[in-house]
Design a protein around this nucleic acid. Structure first.
Lengths: 330, 330
DNA sequence: GCAAGGTGTGACAACGTTGTCAAAAGACAA
DNA sequence: TTGTCTTTTGACAACGTTGTCACACCTTGC
């Protein structure tokens, strides 16, 4: 900047004004400054600028996801990015791998870089550590799962209603022995979906048979094994409700291998690419990650714009997509 | 930091030493400083630090991808992140949407934030604009596609060999009328794969029938339409080679709808989740995005560590996964 | 007792920028 | 011309940190 000022024969402050598009610089001078900046390949130094600026904003937000490579998380990231770029804000992204310690490390690394806001898909179960960040002026929004021990904005799927809807659909098709395959019980969404399953069975006056329930399945392999064990046992279920993406895939794979994919009904939570091309197509309770991310980003920026209203919890609805597997009758 | 110094009754410089883990501070003082820092919720200000530091490093890199939500790109992002976190480096990610202008805007936004390095999956076709960044000391590595008009490191898939391998496999199964469905010809990988297809046909002494070729297909719908048109025409192909992910899906969908999915052979470039569960399973030429990202990040950090050797072009091999669709005989 | 050498600590300037305020230059009316 | 008002410009300090250098304090050896 100093060099640009020297070349344009103006003060450093005038260069600052031109760079920031401030009013009150005569057009003639502005042109001279811009020409000098061009000639010297001048790049505005944003960290230095935000260090000095009154608001201290870095025009950067941090996003903590379960895994940036997983389709749900990356859809979140993309929709957050779309809102952010409109405001010239960039996104720092990191993966927690469902590990609370990594979540905290990422938040700390983001805080060191003075991000303006944080969007967190939480892995830990005590978010009071974020009080410090909020006191420092960082806006915080939770996605997919609600905060614990912290009052903050959140945007979540209506997991209970979605699970109930799926189970209801299976009951409508005549099923009474409906198995449940769920993710780690420590994950809030997994817990709520499982509760939805139980609640709907209760509503339908069907007793929960614990032998048809398998929880804490992480990944395709475990789901495959659990499904195999379940449907080849005595008194197998006539239908399965799977509480997560990869579990649905594992369950379908097991059913296919056992030649039961057209006999045992299957409904999965969360949509899967290509689910319509399988035989039968897989009926799912689809979430809307793009809507969740968009909503979260909008709330975040509203907070950064000064919104001080009480924290809100936004619920995004699910949509059932029937493709065949959920319509198999017992 | 000033407040911490005051509370611990030391100079600001001593606090700096403790925060940075520099040697030459007596343990007693260090403890006192850390206690004070804890009590005041002190957070080290990395932008300010790197502003003053001799090397000026921000411990942040920028990644420009086609779309962070697309599986190939997000796998790249994740493997880059894994290498970066080991060094305490965070990742700024952005999507170009195959638009050269957005690519440049993202690079410019990254540069303003003084990233130490850039990993770029390029959309534009003239990368000489990056000379400025490199002169400023930014390390740059291209992934998936090579740079143009710029001498820089790159890590790419062996697209030509992969395409040839797939076409070869179809010829081995007895096919002579092999259709080709390709992505935008402006994308380097798409061009190279198409050339691989032609080269292998030439090698096999099979004339290219231009009526069996459809290029510039972007997305599932267009691929579906093109496939439908191709296989329902006169003298249809007995096999299809698809040059990209979504095109493979679109082609399969069309074949399924027409009841030809067990008659017309299909091999796709790039693997697809669930491809093994379709009927028939889809034979693919699989890329290894994790290896590409990892390699790129390793090169990037080696450059940041001072490696001044000539720029290199690393090629990551493909792997053919046979699942049935590519083994259908004419 | 003193010089020489090491260790621990702090004062100060500087990184690249912007907020504040004052001064210079121009515009206009009397 | 002068005085007043407005516009344009610049000098300086400050943001939070670290590099440089010097000083004070210990040892150690004679």
């Amino acid at each position: 900047m100093r060099e640009v000022a020297a070349l344009a024969k103006v003060s450093i402050k005038t260069v600052s004004r031109v760079v920031n598009g401030e009013s009150g610089v005569s057009p003639r001078l502005a042109r001279r400054v811009m020409a000098a900046a061009d000639r010297l390949d001048y790049r505005h130094n944003l960290p230095a600028s935000s260090l000095r600026r009154a608001d201290g904003r870095s025009a950067t937000i941090g996003v903590v996801l379960e895994d940036v490579a997983n389709p749900f998380s990356s859809a979140l990231q993309r929709s957050i990015e779309d809102i952010a770029v409109q405001r010239g804000v960039l996104v720092l992204a990191g993966s927690s791998d469902e590990d609370g310690v990594r979540e905290r490390k990422l938040v700390s690394a983001f805080a060191s870089r003075r991000v303006d806001g944080l969007v967190i898909q939480p892995a830990s179960h005590d978010h009071s550590y974020l009080l410090t960040e909020r006191k420092a002026g960082t806006a915080i929004v939770f996605v997919d799962r609600p905060p614990e021990f912290l009052d903050a904005d959140s945007v979540v799927t209506d997991n209970a209603a979605g699970a109930r809807r799926g189970v209801h659909h299976l009951v409508e098709s005549g099923h009474r022995r409906i198995g449940y395959l769920g993710d780690l019980h420590t994950i809030d969404t997994a817990r709520v979906r499982y509760e939805g399953y139980r609640a709907e069975l209760a509503e339908q006056k069907i007793d929960v048979d614990e032998r048809l329930v398998r929880l804490d399945l992480r990944g395709i392999e475990k789901a495959d094994a659990a499904t195999t064990e379940l449907v080849t046992g005595t008194q197998p279920p006539t239908a399965l409700f799977t509480g997560q993406n990869l579990i649905t895939i594992g369950a379908f794979r097991a059913l296919r291998r056992l030649g039961l994919h057209k006999k045992v009904a299957l409904i999965g939570f969360d949509d899967i690419l290509l689910a319509d091309l399988l035989e039968p197509g897989i009926t799912v309770i689809a979430q809307d990650p793009a809507a969740i991310g968009r909503t979260a980003a909008e709330i975040l920026f509203r907070r950064l714009d000064g919104d001080r209203s009480p924290s809100q919890r936004r619920v995004v609805l699910t949509r059932m997509i029937t493709r065949g597997s959920g319509e198999i009758r017992p």
